[in-house]
Amino acid sequence: MSIDLKQDHFSLFGLPRRYALDETALEAAWHGLQSQVHPDRHAHLPDVDKRRAMQWATRVNEGFQTLKKPLARARYLLELAGVDVGAETNTAMSPEFLMEQMEWREAVEEARDAGEVEALEHLHMRLLRHARDVRGELARQLDTDHDYSQAADTVRRLMFIEKLQHEIDEALLALEG
């Protein structure tokens, strides 16, 4: 058996291929792998070893980042299952969801224009809870129902939510100077 750079992230980290994640195990595997491959471990070796170490350490970090972030992990699982999330092309969302999005966005704009830090922070917290609920749905669709087309839909919803969260954070940042 040969291990190569193209191996999927779950097997690289020795984790089951599913959405639900043991974060402690992921982090331990990350540290374990970096302890072997990090360039600092190969600093006293010839250049060829150092180059290889950097490639591997880069690969391990990429895998860690993908598995750690729930949205990235879900997108990756769908990619492995051959389902195209179609973030750019497929924007057909349910009217309810789009309405909800508009309401959120208006609330953010209002609070931002009025310079209301507290209102923005409140929105931030509400959106965090909402995102958690949506991630719950996603876990069920991916791990229990194996309904990938529904999951792809949920992933797109989560992407909207993250974008909105980012806008709130930017607005807060701007208000704080």
Partner: peptide, 19 residues
């Protein structure tokens, strides 16, 4: 020594995986 280095890296990654 390139091939040897590659094998050693694979080997160390495998052992890290095995814990």
């Amino acid at each position: 020594t390139d091939e040897f280095a590659a094998r050693r890296m694979d080997n160390s990654i495998r052992s890290a995986l095995a814990g």
